[in-house]
Amino acid sequence: MSEYAGLRVLVVEDEPVVAMCLEDILESLGCETVGPAGRLAEGLALAEREDIGAAILDINLAGERSTPIAEALLRRGVPIAFASGYGAVPEGFETVPLIEKPYREADIDAALRGLLNGAE
């Protein structure tokens, strides 16, 4: 738990129930949640403004793609992972890990660990 102490994780997820679920998982892992953002503009604003250690982005946000958020975070050197039911990362983000929905706490844990290790 203490592993992620103080880690601020941006949650971009347009499905309220799923977002709440992810918030709970992150909370139980000891992370601090930023968001959740359910819309692109909202997510983009958080990505640029907040102090963020990692991000988990739903790909499809009410018909828009979250890739601008991803680009903004990557520019800032924030490690990100996509979460999606589509089974594939967007074109151009092949190196970004994918967490397939539905996910369990262990999936998020493993993804975060991967992100942090990769960032070191």
Binding site: V18, C21, S84, G85, Y86, P102
Partner: peptide, 18 residues
């Protein structure tokens, strides 16, 4: 469909968890 099912499952999972 696959996407919707996965999304729905994610929602169901969320509901269950809550």
């Amino acid at each position: 469909l696959n996407h919707r099912v996965k999304n729905t499952l994610a929602i169901v999972q969320g509901i269950a968890q809550q």
